[in-house]
Every structure is written in structure tokens, then in C-alpha cells.
Design a protein around this nucleic acid. Structure first.
Length: 345
DNA sequence: TCTAGACCTGA
DNA sequence: CAGGTCTAG
């Protein structure tokens, strides 16, 4: 059975969103690049994206066996809404970059990463998915995190449909991950000690007796709460420390000013912004650096940080999500790897 | 309260 | 060593 795909256009330039960077810089681990088309699943469809010079083409494939009586125009509207929401398109990135460049040039003599890496924005991802993905990220690398997220949807998600010979599944809900045996299954899949974290966290959402306060509704509601409330809530969950909590705050809960401090960002602060380094990374230093970056870059400091992080990352093409590439058309991103002295935080 | 070590796995 | 967290003392 062949599926008809109708492509639609959104007038967005690469300077506002660079899919190749945004979808591979360690915010999301689940987009696949199949023959130069990006693909992702929501709960009820596969979303497809393709970037061009002055627009992005998008399409979708519905959950298999869906009733056909929903008008095409409505499905299109839903898909557009998802894209606008997921990519935070109401935020004008170009004007943010202008301010960041101005601020950054006070610290840099020549070009800043913002001039070399346009189009990097923070996504507005689903809180539950972001929570589980970033539990996987602890002491881990992008390639393996991507592989783990792929295992997660294939093993525990619901089947959506097929595209280009690949079967797509939705991201599993907490009920699926709280079932008996999930932990050992995750161990078998190579999750290591994170298997326990994920299972325990899912259990807390399931067990309304012991944890009446921990529900998906409350998690989603954190978008409307202040940062401290959100941060404290997340710290209750197993496998979530200050760094992972901040990633979730920034990438799912609309806390645009929060800069997650990891080994990388710490080094950037010391190396490029003359932050007075301390030997150990404790809670106090963590807080100091976050305030430090917020003072430099302002209310969207978390967004700015992702540009710095990506420019420092070097090879973005290291994930497993690149499925197949048309010969000779691969976009190569050349970056000198500036990683200096090492991580003795 | 705060600081070292252990912790899964794969490159 | 990888975008850390948990635990004991």
C-alpha cells in the first residue's frame, strides 16, 4: 500500500530555524533523517520536514487505521499548530541573535559563535518525553542517548505507521514504562543504571497513593509555574538532579532564561567569559554560573547557551539518526574543535 | 550540609 | 570520557 504524501509550505528561513543544527544539537534525540527528510512522531502521526532556502516543507502520515472522516484541512491545521508550537516559532530568533552578538562582542575580539551558527533555537518539547530523555542523558553521549530513545519508542511505544520502510512508534507514556519487568528489559536494551531511574520515575507517576502530588497534569502545569517550583518538583523524581531538571525547565517548561550548567558550559564560562573557576562544582558555583550567563545574555539566556554549546560541540553528525544519505548531497558542518583542557570540575 | 566514589555501556 | 545522579560518612 502506497501512502500519498502532500507537501505544504511554511515560510521560514534557515536563519530562524536550522533543522540540521536544532534537531541534532542534543535537545531532542528522536528525529530521524531519512533521505534528507526529517521525521518524528507525535501521539497520532508521523511529522515530516524538509528545509529549503526560503521555506520549510512539511507533511504528515496519520496513525494507521484512523477514521478517514476527519477533513484534510483540519489535519493540516493540527500539523501546522504542532510545528509552530514545537519550534517556538512565535519567538523571533534573528532579533535575539542581534542582542546576543552585541553582548558577546564585549568578551570576544573577533567573531562570536552567534555569527557562525545562525538558526539555533530552543524547542518546546513534551514535558514527559523531555523528562525521560534527559534521565537517559546523565553521564552519556548524544549517540547513545539517541539509540536509547529509539529503543524506548520501538519497545514500549504505540505503532503509528510506516514511512520509507521504517516503522514509527509514539513515545511511550508512563503507564507503559511502569509495568513490571520494564527495568530488566531496559537493562537488556543497554540502558545501564538509568533503567532503574526510568522505571522508578514512571512508578511515581503511577502510584497516586504514595505520590499524590506527582502526576502528568502537574508536570505539564509547571509551564505556568515559576522556575523554583518547577525545579523542586523535578528533583523529586529518581535520576533527576539539578542539571537534568534545568534541561527540562528550559526545553519543555518555557523557562527560557535558565542555563543548564554541565561540564561543557562550565568550561565555556571559564575559557571564553573569564569566569573565575573554582576547583569543585558545588551547588553554589552552579548557581553563580547560571546568574553569570543570565546577566550577559538576558531573559533568553538559555537559548543563547544552546548556541554556545552547539558551537563547542563540533561534530553534529555523530548521532545514529542519520539513516540514509543521497550521495554527494550531505551537508557537512566544519567546526574547529576548540575543546581545551579537560574536565576536572 | 557537603564532598568523594560508584555506577552501565560503548567509542 | 560521555551534556550526572545517588549514596555513604
Amino acid at each position: 500500500m502506497t501512502v500519498d504524501i502532500m507537501w505544504k509550505k511554511l515560510p521560514i528561513k534557515p536563519i530562524e530555524v536550522s533543522l540540521n543544527k536544532v534537531l541534532r544539537c542534543g535537545q531532542t534525540f528522536r528525529w530521524k533523517n531519512v533521505n534528507n527528510t526529517w521525521s518524528f512522531t507525535t501521539q497520532d502521526r508521523i511529522v515530516l520536514l524538509k528545509q529549503f532556502e526560503d521555506h520549510i516543507q512539511y507533511s504528515w502520515i496519520m496513525l494507521e487505521g484512523q477514521p478517514k472522516d476527519v477533513p484534510h484541512s483540519q489535519l493540516e491545521k493540527e500539523t501546522t499548530s504542532f510545528i509552530e508550537d514545537y519550534f517556538n516559532l512565535e519567538v523571533n530568533l534573528e532579533s535575539l541573535y542581534k542582542n546576543w552578538i552585541k553582548a558577546d562582542l564585549l568578551y570576544k575580539k573577533k567573531k562570536t559563535p552567534f555569527q557562525k551558527f545562525p538558526g539555533i533555537r530552543i524547542l518546546r518539547q513534551d514535558p514527559w518525553e523531555t523528562l525521560i530523555s534527559f534521565i537517559c542523558s546523565s553521564n552519556n553521549n548524544v549517540k547513545r542517548i539517541s539509540k536509547m530513545c529509539d529503543s524506548l519508542v520501538n519497545e514500549f511505544g504505540e505503532y503509528i505507521n510506516e514511512y520509507e520502510g521504517i516503522k514509527y512508534y509514539s513515545f511511550p507514556n508512563f503507564q507503559s514504562l511502569a509495568k513490571p519487568g520494564v527495568e530488566s528489559k531496559l537493562r537488556d536494551l543497554g540502558f545501564g543504571y538509568r533503567a532503574k531511574y526510568i522505571y522508578q520515575t514512571a512508578l511515581k507517576f503511577l502510584d497516586n497513593e504514595k505520590y499524590p502530588d506527582i502526576t502528568i497534569e502537574k508536570l505539564n502545569d509547571l509551564r505556568l509555574q515559576d522556575y523554583e517550583t518547577a525545579h523542586d518538583f523535578l528533583l523529586q523524581l529518581t535520576g533527576v538532579g539539578p542539571k537534568v531538571a534545568d534541561c527540562i525547565c528550559l526545553m519543555a517548561l518555557d523557562k527560557h532564561d535558565i542555563v543548564p550548567i554541565d561540564t561543557h558550559v562550565y568550561q565555556i564560562a571559564v575559557r571564553d567569559y573569564k569566569f573565575k573557576g573554582s576547583k569543585t562544582m558545588n551547588k553554589q558555583v552552579y548557581h553563580q554560573i547560571r546568574v553569570f550567563f543570565k546577566e550577559i545574555f538576558g531573559p533568553y539566556a538559555g537559548w543563547a547557551q544552546s548556541v554556545l554549546f552547539t558551537s563547542d560541540l563540533g561534530d553534529l553528525n555523530n548521532g545514529i539518526n542519520k539513516v540514509e544519505v543521497i550521495k554527494g548531497e550531505e551537508e557537512t558542518i566544519k567546526v574547529e574543535n576548540k575543546r581545551g583542557i579537560l574536565r576536572t570540575l
